[in-house]
Write a protein that binds this DNA or RNA. Structure first.
Lengths: 230, 230
DNA sequence: GACACTGCTGCCATAAACTGTCAGCAGGAA
DNA sequence: TTCCTGCTGACAGTTTATGGCAGCAGTGTC
């Protein structure tokens, strides 16, 4: 009775592992089920909102994302999720902000009526809205951090001097109105901070930088006078 | 094939409606199912993490909370949820903050390995951590706002003058290090702001204040020079 | 254009599951 | 005690899921 939903999650997992299109036959084999049932499973997942695309002659691909299984949240946890999403929608860079708004809408859509007002509840985030638009793709920066990739920055500093640098990004700091990349700068052979809104242009090097980002973070922390949280 | 999971959600909904314990017989009647099956359904829900408590001779009660059905999130939406939860865990009042951390942990637990590092990913929230502990229960304040209940405040202002007031709270503002209750003050017959960390003592009046909180919010906005977001 | 490969749907017999009825045990309340 | 209730096991009937088959349509290759 729970076997089916588990199998569907396993199918999603399998689908996520492959980057290239996978044929139904392969998926059926991996989930240990007949081809006919696999087609039904795919249909079930799609009905539940999974973004699986199938093309005749090609196979199936899953658009990047993840299906959260049914989960129980306490009232406060839900409140935290809602408040957090609203903060992201308000304070993060535009692209992530709209993702936050989307996530919030998805959650609100399934909330019972008496809980839905939590979403548009009277919570205000104070301070003027940031106006400096990022030219750089902050999502790409975050991805570069996760994958420990070298960033090639075309950067203008406070004095307006423009420079090109190769840096090893290991953290992204959210200040009230700006976001700061913490990185090791190959040019200066030292830690340097870069405001995302001052990045003129940017490219991600496909090579991995030679250190672990957690080690860099730890080392960087040691250089700071006032400890920074999280 | 979808009937069962729908019935389980309906059962949760039903259970949520009642505040007092409900007997299995009643629940079976409302969901249109036999008592035996109801027991099986309850067991299923509990296995999925629902906090349902049953006691012989009493009935069932559902601890306040909500079960999110399976949902599909894009990579960015997930990132927004994670970042938002981390912000809450860092910036909100202690109780909500720990709820944020719990929610984050729940999500992290079901994330596939290659996405899990998103959670402890290098994101820093900058600014020193707030040290002023709230004496007041901010969760209760938020609840009072939602339910439009009168708050009786024992409050000390900037000059250290202590006063007692009855106020109609309609919004909670998150500043960088403090939280502010926006309310209509019965004493002053005007809008007033109260820092949560300056509340000495507090009680919630069970009577509803005579206006709608959205109307108060709208009116309050009109009195502000600089528009405040959200 | 022919062919191989694949997604997708309908049909149907079989296998698996869910469900209801019945019975019995255990714990709390009056 | 007696009643009410939660909880579990067993079993038959019902529903649902599954697998195999056939067929259609779209894609890429030769």
């Amino acid at each position: 009775m729970v076997a089916r939903s588990e199998r569907l999650l396993a199918l999603l997992q399998t689908l996520r592992r492959y980057r290239r299109p996978v044929t139904g036959t392969v998926l059926a084999g991996e989930t240990g089920v007949s081809l006919r049932t696999l087609y039904r499973d795919i249909a079930s997942l799609q009905a539940q909102g999974a973004m699986i695309e199938g093309e005749a002659g090609i196979g199936y691909v899953l658009k990047p994302g993840f299906m959260l299984p049914p989960m129980m949240f306490s009232e406060e946890e839900l409140e935290a999720l809602v408040l957090g999403s609203r903060w992201v929608a308000r304070a993060a860079e535009p692209r992530l902000a709209s993702a936050g708004a989307d996530a919030l809408a998805k959650i609100a859509a399934v909330l019972p009526p008496d809980m839905r007002d939590m979403v548009d509840s009277a919570t205000l985030f104070v301070g003027r809205k940031r106006q400096d638009e990022d030219k750089a793709d902050v999502s790409a920066i975050r991805k570069a951090i996760r994958l420990e990739r070298i960033l090639e920055l075309h950067y203008g500093d406070e004095q307006g001097r423009v420079s090109r640098r190769r840096v090893w990004p290991f953290a992204l700091g959210y200040f009230e109105h700006v976001r700061i990349i913490m990185a090791w700068c190959e040019l200066r052979q030292d830690f340097r901070h870069f405001r995302t809104d001052r990045i003129i242009d940017m490219a991600i090097d496909e090579t991995r930088y030679p250190r672990r980002r957690t080690a860099l973070l730890k080392e960087w922390r040691a250089t700071q006078d006032t400890p920074i949280e999280q």
